[in-house]
Design a protein around this nucleic acid. Structure first.
Lengths: 252, 252
DNA sequence: ACCTGAACACCGTTCAAGT
DNA sequence: ACCTGAACACCGTTCAAGT
């Protein structure tokens, strides 16, 4: 027997998947359960769709990851200020990038693994290079300056995020993780008593504060180094290098 | 019918797996085919063993990855010099770390994702902190200094390795990758003509040289920033921060 | 144009069983 | 002590078929 009622209505559940919705749901899943938990099947399930339906909107899982990664780049400029000198802009950017990457720790293995050429990534690049351009950097130094800021923040946040992932897995208690790690480290650091002493000296410090201070210290180094190069350039000194000034040609 | 000849000899193939051998073979596979290509089954096959045999020596695939990662840390001190000031030591270290990470690009998503507490990682940490300690850094600044060097190198090498992976996949021709990327970038950078102009300005430069210069520039910034902090500390100035000197309390 | 299910060729890991 | 095979519960992706 046939009837309107036996035949299911045209589209019972979601009013059609689209790319934005898929990306949004993927991010939610990633934030909640991490990189390993994202599978096309699970994601499909969350969207009331077959796993394979996603392949209409997205060529491959890897492509989906590029999309969510670009979304993260979009957050990097969330709370940075437009005004102030280049140093203020970079400070604001660096902290925004740090916050975002800590919030989306799963993004860290993705960033740097695939090229940053999504629209949001390009916006970020454009903003930073223009800032350094206006600050007075010339030629390739403008890109190098951009690169060092991005590199530092990425590299600094990576261990922070790893630590966060571990504490979340371990039940959220930072002190417990510390306690669990201590004997492990004690054994491994048998030949390095200095390391153990240092580790113990953290005992009564708030780890979150230490990490923030460490980030700030490193960021300060980078920005000071950039300022020094800007000065030298303005006063027409020699081009800069990692070797200390005056030692470029080690008089043989 | 039974006989010595019908019964296979005690151990026909490998004289027994061991952890070192497994780790070595895993690294060979990773170097040759990348992170995605490493599976317990494939690795077992390469060792003339059942995939599940590996689980006697290694609790889990993740644990195996920790082992190979620590091996990479071991290479970081391959060609750095013992003598010279802290700056020379850090230069040598940074370049050794860069070389090693570019050679083992698969290690980049692993590093920072899991804690660096293997024996080789601890050796590296110990060496760097001791160097900064002797250089005159005090208290937590010693660890912060170590952290900024490690962070910078890691963050700087990540995109380099990504680029290398892409060119290897694309057949090894750097210029071809550039050519393939240009239209892609042209479309994406519609709203950012400055970016496209910059990209085109690389045209006649050797990408390897540009990357090396970029690395050197950033490393110089970091080391200069550290040197400045060391000076300030020696002369008893205020503790350092990412904010520029004299702007710590923005007089409201 | 968009979605589905079945199917293919893989995974990591467990475990009882062998030597 | 060390290794194996079968088995479980997953993967990403393809593709002919549906609406």
């Amino acid at each position: 027997m046939e009837s309107v009622w036996t035949r299911p209505p045209r589209r019972p559940k979601a009013p059609g998947l689209d790319r934005a919705q898929i990306v949004r749901e993927a991010m939610a899943l990633l934030d909640a359960e991490g990189l390993d938990a994202l599978s096309m099947r699970r994601l499909g399930g969350r969207l009331n769709a077959g796993a394979t339906s996603l392949y209409w909107h997205v060529a491959t899982k890897d492509e989906l990851l590029e999309l969510v990664l670009d979304e993260v780049y979009g957050e990097f400029r969330a709370h940075d200020s437009e005004h102030g000198g280049w140093r203020e802009v970079m400070l604001g950017f660096a902290y925004a990038m740090r916050d975002s990457l800590i919030r989306h720790a799963w993004a860290i293995p993705l960033i740097g693994t695939r090229p940053a050429i999504g629209p949001q990534a390009l916006r970020v690049m454009s903003r930073l290079t223009n800032t350094f351009d206006q600050a007075g950097f010339e030629g390739f130094d403008t890109e190098y300056a951009t690169a060092v800021v991005l590199s530092y923040v990425l590299g600094a946040v990576a261990p922070e995020a790893a630590w966060k992932t571990m504490t979340v897995r371990g039940g959220g208690d930072a002190q417990a993780v510390r306690a669990a790690m201590r004997p492990l480290l004690a054994e491994a650091a048998a030949g390095h008593p200095d390391l153990l002493a240092r580790f113990d000296s953290y005992e009564h410090e708030d780890p979150a504060v230490l990490r923030a201070l460490s980030f700030d210290f490193g960021l300060g180094c980078v920005l000071d180094g950039l300022a020094a190069r800007l000065d030298r350039q303005a006063t027409g000194s020699r081009p800069s290098s990692a070797r200390p000034a005056g030692k470029e040609s080690p008089a043989s």
